[in-house]
């Protein structure tokens, strides 16, 4: 693990060719990297990052089949603990609840489990009476603390309350490519990322169905795999095969395309997902480089 101070950081992120003038409008600046846990064991193909209260940063260290928990202090990423759980053998995604518990999506089981930040397993997050093959592709936590599951088998987004009771349900449209991730903003608007159809779908807070955004994803997005919404109406897409983060504003216009495929700090190789800490930092699960990178978000 290492931290990189803002003042000492001179590496400027390359703006990918073709991003245009708008790409200059929004920048990510690398400020830190996590390479290992507290014992020096290297991260291996991490695919999930989750930002939580009090600087908590959880990492799904997928290749090692475990979760590593860090604390972010003054842009230093300090390892706290790590754990592997038989109930969640292959963590793909991780999110942090407001009270500090972690939600982890497991690749082998394709369902979400809740654990404490110390690694105590609390149970699976799924509607009661679930039958058939589990197929949760992604999930997010909304502003009320409800968990939004991207249930690709059921072709729906299903919200579950803290008590596990099903709430709002949003059906997938008939005509779409494949939804690889979802985001929920502070107002309850749901965004579905159709990486195959290269399009975003949205549902307002009271909608039961999603509708496609008029504009396709910007040219140059190779294979968008993950999406995150900030508190200001902006969307952050992870372009997995392009090694970049693409920033869109509320109407879908591109505010920037940042980073590029590469090995050096500040560059990304097959990034899997991101999280925002709400304080101006963005963390990337830089899967192909076996590390997690932190960037400051700004113009």
């Amino acid at each position: 693990m290492s931290g990189i101070g803002r003042s000492g950081m001179v590496l400027a992120l390359a703006v990918a060719a073709g991003a245009g003038i708008a790409a200059e409008a929004f920048r990510l600046r690398p400020v830190g990297v996590a390479y290992a846990d507290g014992k020096g064991t290297a991260l291996r193909a991490p695919e999930g990052v989750g930002c939580g209260p009090d600087g908590l940063l959880a990492v799904a260290d997928t290749g090692n089949g475990r979760v590593v928990v860090y604390e972010v202090r003054d842009e230093e990423i300090v390892p706290r603990t790590d754990f592997a759980l038989p109930e969640l053998p292959y963590p793909l995604r991780v999110r942090v609840e407001s009270k500090g518990d972690l939600l982890v999506l497991d690749g082998r089981l394709r369902k979400v489990g809740r654990v404490s930040a110390r690694g105590e397993f609390r149970g699976y997050v799924e509607p009661a009476g679930t039958q058939g093959i589990a197929a949760t592709r992604g999930f997010k936590i909304d502003g009320r603390g409800d968990v939004a599951l991207l249930d690709v088998a059921g072709a729906r987004v299903l919200f579950l309350g803290a008590d596990g009771r099903p709430g709002r349900e949003i059906r997938f449209p008939d005509a779409c490519g494949f939804f690889s991730d979802l985001a929920v903003d502070g107002k309850g608007t749901v965004f579905l990322l159709d990486g195959v159809g290269r399009r975003l779908f949205t549902a307002g807070p009271d909608d039961k169905a999603v509708r496609p955004r008029p504009a396709a994803l910007p040219d140059g997005v190779d294979f968008a795999s993950s999406i995150e919404a900030d508190g200001a109406g902006r969307l952050f897409l992870v372009d997995q095969n392009g090694g970049a983060i693409v920033i869109l504003d509320a109407d879908g216009s591109m505010l920037g395309r940042q980073s590029m495929m590469g090995w050096r700090e500040g560059q990304l190789r097959y990034p899997a997902s991101i999280c925002l800490d709400g304080k101006g930092l963005l963390f990337v699960a830089d899967r192909g480089n076996n590390r997690v990178q932190a960037f400051s978000v700004g113009r």
């Binding site: 053998p89 292959y90 082998r108 058939g132 197929a135 690709v152 088998a153 997938f172 494949f178």
Partner: peptide
């Protein structure tokens, strides 16, 4: 996939036991 699994359980059970599924296999 629930329908196909009746006959092709060898293929699908093997797939469902792996760490990473090709997600379209399990969608609607």
């Amino acid at each position: 996939v629930d329908l196909c699994r009746d006959c092709h359980s060898d293929v699908l059970d093997e797939a469902l036991s792996r760490n990473r599924i090709h997600w379209p296999v399990v969608d609607r």
